[in-house]
Simulated scan of single mutants.
Amino acid sequence: MFGRCNFALLNKYSIVCKTFYKPHLSTAAHLSADSAALGKSRQPHKLLILPPSTTSSQAPFHITTAQQLRQNMSADSKFKLTEVEGDLFSAPETHSLAHCVGADFAMGAGIAVKFKQIYGQVDQLRAQGVQSGGVAVLQDKERYIYYLVTKPQSWGSPTYDSLRASLVAMREHMRKNNVHKLAIPRIGCGIDGLEWDKVSAELCKVFDSEELEIVVYNFVPK
């Protein structure tokens, strides 16, 4: 009798396990496996950071990438900023010109020397009384020559703030006179010591909403 009771209880336990515990345990196991797989799929992707290029003829990787991003940001706007190799003074007369100077208009070094030789009128520039953060202007036939005053003296150094202020002053003149094409060197760089990557970013910030084409001429001696 005792053996029959134990056998009945064993059968009952087996039936309960098959009908209730086993399916739940199986479902839990599947959920656990799915969660583990999902967790693996949700692991963050690793970001591959490339080192700057060491090739002298190419811009560093981070600069090139920044330029590409700015071009993409401006793709839907009317503002375009491009760079070419060539002599700035060979730019079409449809393009106005701009470069950086000190408020004393000494123009004794860098590309400013060439502007002084070609366009002169230094006394007229000084008579405009423009201080750092402003812009002096000469007219050459149908185009304008912009002198971005980015520092008090020619031997000094500009800042990004003074450059930005001069760019804004030039933008206001360009708006009033319907100037839509501009040719420039890498303003503020070279002997002035600013970084072109940051300067070009300032150009995009100041002119991004303008209907304007800016061509940057990089003179490369042959």
Rank of each mutant, 00 (worst) to 15 (best):
A28H: 10
I49W: 05
T55I: 02
E172W: 11
G86V: 01
L203C: 07
F207N: 03
V179H: 00
G188C: 11
C189F: 03
I118T: 07
A36Y: 10
R175A: 15
D208M: 00
D123L: 09
Q67S: 12
V113H: 01
Q71L: 06
V149A: 08
D34V: 09
L125C: 07
W196F: 14
R70N: 06
T150C: 15
A37D: 09
A91Q: 06
Q121F: 02
A28D: 04
I15H: 04
P52S: 06
H30P: 01
I118Q: 13
T150D: 10
G102E: 02
P92R: 08
P51N: 13
D140M: 09
M107A: 00
S200N: 08
V135Q: 06
L182D: 05
G129Y: 05
S41I: 05
K18N: 12
F2A: 14
Q128D: 02
Q128K: 08
H24Q: 13
A136M: 07
D140A: 14
L97P: 14
S57W: 00
C100W: 01
A37G: 02
P51K: 15
S56W: 07
L194Q: 05
S132A: 15
D87L: 08
S162H: 09
S57R: 07
A8I: 11
H99T: 05
Y13N: 07
S157I: 03
A29C: 13
L50W: 07
G129S: 06
T94P: 10
I184N: 10
D161N: 06
